[in-house]
Amino acid sequence: MTRIIVITSGKGGVGKTTTSAAFAMGLALEGYKTAVIDFDVGLRNLDLVMGCERRVVYDFVNVINKEARLNQALIRDKRTENLYILPASQTKDKEALTIDGVEAVLNELADTFDYIVCDSPAGIEHGAFMAMYFADEAIVVTNPEISSVRDSDRILGLLSSKTRRAKENRPPVKEHLLLTRYSPERVLRGEMLSVKDIQDILSIPLLGVIPESEAVLTASNQGVPVIANRNSDAGLAYQDCVARFLGEEIEMRFIDPKKKGLLSKFFGSN
């Protein structure tokens, strides 16, 4: 049974596309056939983060408008077996996505894929609504910052009222909290909301915590999802998240400050 996962947040710039790329690749590396769809029509970026921007010929809207077949538009990832990308259109506007059109594409993908990851645009407009409508599970990406937490709460309200599962009175969309750009050192100094603070406020299960990491920018510079970097804290944190998502019990990492050596304590270097 295919599972549809939406990566959403409300607020922009919190790491939805980074997470979509990492998560989709993580699922594929675990052997699941995975498609990741960019719903940000007009502002396509997932292809850049995945490093396949020069291989885009047809896009999601072309498939909806029957200007191309689905397997013409799907881009196979060159590094990872089982991973396919469906890019957004850069020229059309978001209204080009229709419920019927999106449903037809998802149904066709469901014939052969285990997971469909939907990368939502920011905001709570049409594009974000389309990305969440058919979801079975939602990963709500949140920064430890008040406006992001508030927007996440708003998105949780929409997930429980505006999705197909809500409309059809089926079991609700399964919600997961993913905290990104977390800095344990700043939490310790009382400068940043802690994991517990945010869980208290949003009260949904925590999937994982991605630490603030230089590896994320490096990864997007190179067009390689950060999960592929097995030497980075962010890459490892995403691997943990994927494993937890698939049902493994793994202790949270990167939520406590790094232990400093005696020398760096004295000289204040990191």
Partner: peptide
Amino acid sequence: NRRSAEVAKERLSILIARDQIQR
């Protein structure tokens, strides 16, 4: 500095309770 995260949590709790009532 120590207090800014506490202030944030307090502001958020009030705000979100109010948002939820309105919703």
